[in-house]
Design a protein around this nucleic acid. Structure first.
Lengths: 205, 205
DNA sequence: TATTGACTGGACTCTGCAGTCCATTTATGA
DNA sequence: TCATAAATGGACTGCAGAGTCCAGTCAATA
């Protein structure tokens, strides 16, 4: 807890633990995450694990942070192009394709975590909340740019539309997991895009 | 497995087990469900539990079925009035209020289950899928009636809109759980309603 | 009333897993 | 080169929870 001093080697080990843990979560779900499994795959001893993390809960929070930044970083090149509808459409396609490749299993890497968290793990929940906030911010920024540049008419509220996109994303991914099909996700996001299309400034003619 | 013969007493015991189990899930989540807890609260012995269920997994599937029918039954009076926009609006308010009362915790009683299921529990997943299907069907039926009666213009696809409502519901509830606030849910559902409002036949004037 | 099978009680086993402990190794910097 | 602290290995503890076993009870029916 009180920020243990880390050497370069120590930091690497810690990082390896977190990475392995989040990989295992991606494979088997947070529920099935066992510290022994983490140790085995990360080639690390129990002593090391508890040298770097005070408890299982601490590791879970760290791993959650890792998943959030990983998911967001992966999309950052796409986020940079969210200032046109084509860019937004491309992002949608990429997200759908990503989950199609994964066999439409597991839902949202971030969103699926909340219900698997221990009741009372406020730390991890806060991390997830911040993650969605950032996700929404990226979308909002793109939309705001479109409004400012006149691509979208100013009846569009970027923050509001961004929230609806995040909700469509999460709802779509949940149903994707239930039905093992990405059509739900695609439909949900496309519906939001369709709505935006109706507010293209050029369509105002 | 091969449908054990149940007496009246046996059926009551079995029912009690399932009810208690789903109550415990509502309180602490599926992840935290322990068979010992179930036995204790249901005033039932281990022997009884395994007399009625082949395994923990079998109980989970049964409990999932119970949750699904409970959630759907609770809404059936509202489902009956889904053939007007006012009825739909009332349903939305009721859903939002329901989750507000629960402290905006736990997300959707049904939807939150999938990510907590054992990977490979296809039986329970199928139950959930059927549940969402029914939920969507109820919404679709209301919308279809509105289209037929001319309340909504026929550019509205009832099945499509019903799916989008279910997605908004699930996404909204997931974010509700993350942020401990129902505004996400309300916003998501209201947005769908708003869209429908634009297609009211009377608005075509 | 005797037999059969559902039903019940609860002790018991076994295992997987979180967390502890401590001895040993490695690095560094005074 | 010696002291110190980080880093590591891994055996060990303790427990909770799934699943077993079997002896005993209840109820219907022949």
């Amino acid at each position: 807890m009180p920020a243990p001093v880390l050497t370069t080697r120590g930091a690497a080990t810690r990082r390896r633990i977190v990475t392995v843990a989040s990989d295992l979560v991606a494979e088997k779900g947070l529920v099935q995450l066992s510290l022994d499994d983490v140790c085995e795959r990360a080639k690390v001893s129990k002593g090391q694990l508890y040298h770097y993390f005070a408890s299982r809960g601490a590791l879970v929070t760290a791993l959650t942070e890792h998943v959030v930044t990983e998911v967001l970083d992966l999309q950052s090149p796409l986020f940079a192009q969210l200032d046109t509808l084509a860019g937004l459409q491309f992002w949608v396609s990429a997200v759908v394709q990503y989950h199609a490749r994964r066999g439409a299993r597991g839902g949202c890497p971030i969103g699926s975590l909340i219900s698997q968290l221990d009741r009372g793990d406020e730390a991890s929940r806060a991390v997830i909340a911040r993650g969605f906030q950032q996700w929404g911010d990226a979308l909002e920024e793109g939309l705001a740019t479109m409004v400012r540049s006149g691509h979208l008419d100013d009846s569009i509220d970027p923050a509001y539309e961004a929230r609806l996109l995040v909700i469509a994303l999460e709802g779509g991914l949940l149903l994707t997991d239930v039905y093992r099909s990405t059509i739900w996700l695609r439909e949900a996001l496309d519906a939001r895009l369709q709505h935006l299309r109706l507010h293209l400034a050029s369509a105002r003619v």
